[in-house]
Amino acid sequence: MDVRLAGLDDAEGIRAIYNREVLEGTATFDLRPRSITDQRRWLTDRSGAHAVVVAIEDPVVLGFGSLSPYRDRPAYRTTVEDSVYVDPAHQGRGVGRAVLDGLLQTATQHGFHAVVARISGPNEASVALHRACGFETVGIEREVGRKFSRWLDVVVMQRILA
Rank of each mutant, 00 (worst) to 15 (best):
M1S: 10
M1P: 07
R4S: 08
L5F: 11
L8Q: 12
D9C: 09
D9L: 11
A11T: 04
A11W: 03
A11R: 05
A11E: 01
R15N: 15
A16F: 03
Y18H: 11
Y18Q: 07
E21I: 10
E21A: 15
V22D: 01
L23D: 13
E24M: 14
E24S: 08
G25T: 08
A27C: 11
T28P: 03
L31H: 06
L31S: 02
L31N: 01
R32C: 14
R32M: 15
R34I: 08
S35A: 07
I36P: 01
T37A: 10
T37R: 06
T37N: 14
D38T: 05
Q39H: 06
R40N: 07
L43Y: 02
D45S: 13
R46A: 09
S47Q: 07
G48I: 07
A51Q: 00
V54Q: 03
I56D: 14
L62G: 15
G63P: 12
F64M: 02
S66V: 05
L67M: 05
P69L: 10
Y70T: 01
R71Q: 09
R71P: 03
P74Y: 10
P74K: 12
A75H: 14
A75E: 15
R77N: 11
D82T: 06
V84F: 00
V86W: 05
H90W: 09
H90Q: 14
G94Q: 11
V95Y: 10
R97T: 15
R97C: 07
G102H: 03
G102L: 06
L104D: 00
A107F: 06
A107Q: 00
A107L: 00
T108I: 09
Q109M: 14
H110L: 15
G111W: 11
H113S: 14
A114Y: 00
V115D: 00
V115S: 00
V116L: 09
A117R: 01
R118A: 04
I119G: 06
I119Y: 01
G121E: 08
G121Y: 08
G121N: 11
P122S: 13
N123A: 11
A125C: 12
V127I: 15
A128G: 03
R131I: 09
R131M: 10
C133D: 08
G134R: 04
G134F: 10
F135K: 04
F135Y: 06
E136Y: 09
